[in-house]
Amino acid sequence: TFYNFIMGFQNDNTPFGILAEHVSEDKAFPRLEERHQVIRAYVMSNYTDHQLIETTNRAISLYMANL
């Protein structure tokens, strides 16, 4: 899942690491979701930090390219 992918960046001092920290603390994050459209919609609806949203979009693109 995307959640498992992004958790691989925990403790990294990178934008993906920052995203992983936010996702791990977000109890409502769709952890079992595999459809990138649902993940993107969730982030757009629940996150207000523009940098975090952009990082999510980049992470989703990388995740999709590696499926």
Rank of each mutant, 00 (worst) to 15 (best):
H36E: 13
F16W: 05
R31H: 08
R58P: 06
I39C: 02
R35A: 09
N46M: 08
D26T: 05
P30V: 05
K27W: 08
L52Q: 03
D49I: 05
Y63P: 00
I6G: 01
N11G: 15
A20S: 06
A28V: 06
R40D: 03
R58W: 10
V43H: 02
D49K: 06
N57S: 09
M7V: 06
E21P: 02
N57P: 01
F2C: 04
D26H: 06
E33K: 02
F16Q: 01
I39L: 06
N4T: 12
I39Y: 02
I39H: 01
F29K: 00
T48N: 10
M64T: 09
F5T: 00
Y47F: 08
P30D: 04
M44L: 12
N66M: 15
R40E: 09
F9P: 02
N4P: 01
I18N: 08
N46F: 07
N4E: 14
V43F: 07
Q10N: 08
F29W: 05
F9Q: 01
D49T: 06
T48C: 07
V23E: 01
A41N: 11
Q51M: 12
A28C: 12
I6E: 02
S24N: 12
E54M: 11
A65Y: 10
T55S: 08
L67D: 08
Y3W: 07
T48P: 08
D26K: 02
L62D: 06
H22E: 04
T56E: 01
I6Q: 01
F9A: 01
A65K: 12
N66A: 14
R58Y: 11
D49Y: 13
T1M: 05
M64F: 08
S45C: 09
Q10F: 13
I60P: 00
A20D: 02
Y47L: 04
D12N: 12
Q51K: 14
F5H: 00
M44F: 09
N66Q: 14
E25R: 15
E33F: 03
K27S: 11
T55N: 05
F29R: 04
N57M: 14
H50S: 13
A28N: 15
N4L: 11
F5L: 01
E34P: 10
H22Q: 07
L62N: 05
V43E: 01
L19R: 01
F16P: 03
S61T: 13
I60M: 08
I53K: 07
